[in-house]
Design a protein around this nucleic acid. Structure first.
Lengths: 110, 110
DNA sequence: AGATTTCGTAAGTGTTCACTAACGGTTAGT
DNA sequence: ACTAACCGTTAGTGAACACTTACGAAATCT
């Protein structure tokens, strides 16, 4: 389903990444998040919508407040993707000799 | 230095991510990359510039051709960052009981 | 019931960004 | 030296996006 794309784009924005870092450990309300950020409350709300659509956060209602907490479902595919990239790069790096100049012969396989 | 920010934003673009996935295993030239993508050659060249500034790829010249290959230096901080996020989310998830509803008491620590 | 708190949504705006077209520069081949 | 191949850079354009202001909805309190 390639869900890591959405998570990747969601975490690419600095404000959104900061929000996720705040929610990461302890659940917080929207106003509480906006208080510690240089943007307005609606902006935070919109960012939370993006994060929720990426399955990075979820929310539950407590009275009039919406409490947001992290959701592992969105981060897991992203983690797996980055991990696979890392493995491939390390393998290619080791196979090429480990230096930057590279060997003198040129491969032409597809 | 927070270098993972640049790598994150670099890989957020679909075309750029596709380019990196192509270069990931085998070094390729600019024209070779552009041939397998729905964008022009200058576009690929610009994307490679962004990836190189993020230390995700490097290039060496072979005649008139510029051969691009992956660079572990950019991916390593990104991997470490995602990994730390993953650990924190898992810890918070386990500490909250593991379900979505959460407990009935509200923490107020900073 | 009315007032207050907390939040989501819609509309509008300014900026960022990915892309193409045109140009110039470097290297290899004849 | 002249031509061809391969590439980077610049200028300009259209779309995506983050942000603010204004408004409306849901829940709690007096």
């Amino acid at each position: 389903m390639n869900t890591y794309e959405i998570s990747l784009q969601a975490l690419a924005d600095p404000t959104r990444r900061r929000i996720f870092e705040l929610v990461r450990t302890r659940p917080r309300s929207v106003a509480e998040l906006a208080a510690g950020l240089p943007v307005s409350r609606p902006a935070v709300s919109q960012h939370l919508g993006v994060l929720e659509r990426a399955h990075l956060v979820r929310h539950r209602r407590r009275g009039t407040r919406h409490i947001y907490h992290p959701d592992p479902a969105g981060l897991a595919p992203l983690r797996a993707y980055v991990e696979s990239l890392w493995d491939d790069v390390l393998t290619a790096f080791a196979a090429s000799g480990g230096e930057s100049g590279g060997p003198d012969d040129a491969r032409d396989e597809e």
